[in-house]
Simulated assay, not measured.
Amino acid sequence: MSDTILSVKDLKVSFDTYAGEVQAVRGVSFDLKKGEVLAIVGESGCGKSVTAQTIMRLTPTPPSRIKSGSILFDGDIEITKLSDRQMEHIRGSEMGMIFQDPMTSLNPTMTVGKQITEGLRKHQRITGDAANKRALELLNLVGISNPESRILQYPHELSGGMRQRVMIAISLACNPKLLIADEPTTALDVTIQAQIIDLMKKLSEQTQASIIIITHDLGVVAEMAQRVIVMYAGKVVEQGTVDEVFYNPQHPYTWGLLRSIPRLDEMGGGDLVPIPGTPPDLFAPPKGCAFAARCPYAMQVCLEEDPDHTKLTADHSAACWLLHPDAPKVERPVEAGGRKHG
């Protein structure tokens, strides 16, 4: 029996607009193991959220469309081939999602209790006292105090951290096999962020659900994930275990991400080095490496041909011409854990 819960192969997703086709996801491939926490990182607009939403078939069609590729869930369920009705049975029961802003994701006209029990009523046919009992258990599980009173409250009566905990409770209600968290800590202050990260770590250990966490915060990645995927301009440019990507990064874009975060082990935190330039226009992506225009190590071949992934270890690979045997040797500007050379 395979230990892979999700297998995404060569996924391509576009949005058809009046201005033309936006190639949001351009051939993404990765596997997720049972019980694993996988992080997807990258700048805004790199395609990480579209990838996650496409896995749950949440992108509206039109304007979005899956051009090609496969999303195989739980061994034999081809997500790209399912009807809307079939997806309704999987969403909430087999897959759960935690959205970025709970205030806009929760229904302001329904009590917290009704929103938690909605999925139970639909997918597990649990009603009445049994559903309320399960809702109380979930609120306790996510660390909300006085669940008996909270269950009767509306979202606007709760703090941001509590609302996010309610979102997590809703996503866990039917014991899903896959949980997707789309920047779950972005709208929260630093103290509450730490609490939510700690909560999700505990839940992943307790429930054994596989988790995909979408984020641009490398601190969250280091704290939660076992493996990480780095995306740029709709493609995966590097992937590996967290240790491999943090301590032995191989793509210049990954170097840039690591150099742009503050370090606690340097006096004054060290200088933050931004990545110059802007991401490419996905209406007309470049024919070569999408990062070439911003890369200080770009060669002529980078502008003309997109590099294939070079396998570095069983889990670690990167798509960069610098890894070609004939490429000039470059000393990367970050040491282990993201520290700068020099």
Rank of each mutant, 00 (worst) to 15 (best):
K67S: 05
E94P: 03
K48F: 08
S49E: 04
T61Y: 02
A39S: 14
F30L: 13
G35C: 14
M87Q: 06
F30H: 08
I90F: 11
I40Q: 03
K34D: 03
S64C: 14
I77C: 00
R65L: 09
G92T: 01
V50A: 11
K34A: 12
F30S: 07
D76E: 13
S44W: 07
F73M: 07
R57Q: 13
S83K: 11
D76S: 13
C46D: 06
R65E: 01
D74K: 07
G96P: 04
R85I: 10
G69Q: 02
V50E: 01
L58W: 10
T80H: 02
H89Y: 12
L38I: 03
E43Q: 09
E43M: 05
I55N: 08
T59A: 10
Q53Y: 14
T51F: 04
K81H: 07
S44E: 05
E88H: 11
S93Q: 14
D74W: 05
I71A: 05
P62K: 07
S70R: 15
S70M: 10
T59K: 04
D76G: 06
E94Y: 10
E36M: 12
E43Y: 05
S93E: 15
G69W: 01
S70Q: 15
I66W: 11
K34T: 09
S68E: 15
I55K: 08
K48E: 01
